[in-house]
Amino acid sequence: MAELLRLDGASKLFGSLVVIDDLSMHLDEGEALGVIGPNGAGKTTLFNLISGGLKPNAGTVRFGGRDITAVSPHRRCKMGIGRSYQIPHPFEGMTVFENLLVGACFGTDRAEKQCYEPCAQILEQTGLIAKANRLAGSLTLLERKRLELARALASGPRVLLLDEIAGGLTEAECSELVETIREIRTTGMSIIWIEHIVHALVSVVDRLMVINFGRLIEDGDPHAVMKSPMVQEIYMGISAE
């Protein structure tokens, strides 16, 4: 499979605090990669480096064979990096449908009229069609999470970055959302998914990465990674002894 995304020796410092420490990783076209790690491990910062919200202090980010380290976030979106935020950032004064239109119009550089049909289809796919004309500010948490996902999809991504999209949901809501993500996966969409709800994650992803203190700890088959003593100790808080 062709390589889609690669980070080489990426580091990010906030003042003297090292958040991402010489981290290298890659993602193949069509692959689903899960990312886990304790709070403050640097997972969201990793997403910001990929989506362009933050620039690394060292190292490079490559996407589709191009060095995009210096490329701005909106250009990266047009290139095919779509992201959802951990804390939903809906455009509250716009309708759900208009929220998607923003992604579709600007993420794919199409005229507005050409975006209507694809946006309506994504609303169907993500179970939001009945809420299409509701203001995004009036949505429930599950709907806001779905909107994050739908809006990122509307921007026509080649890779979808999902940041704790199932966080804060009930068990039932979580499995509903996992079902939607699984459907999206059937279209061959590449994803990187940060999640604390490990069983949801492991049921979808092809590969699992563990980071701690901004460093890559483990990387490989999800089930093998979860069983590794280092993960049990660091992530699950179970002593290796």
Binding site: G53, H74, G93, C105, F106
Partner: peptide, 25 residues
Amino acid sequence: RSRHGLALTAIRDSEPASESLGVNN
């Protein structure tokens, strides 16, 4: 009512989100 209006309204509501959806804020 134009495409630019969508971008502006999005910027009004959330700048990080509009930028990461392809809007050149």
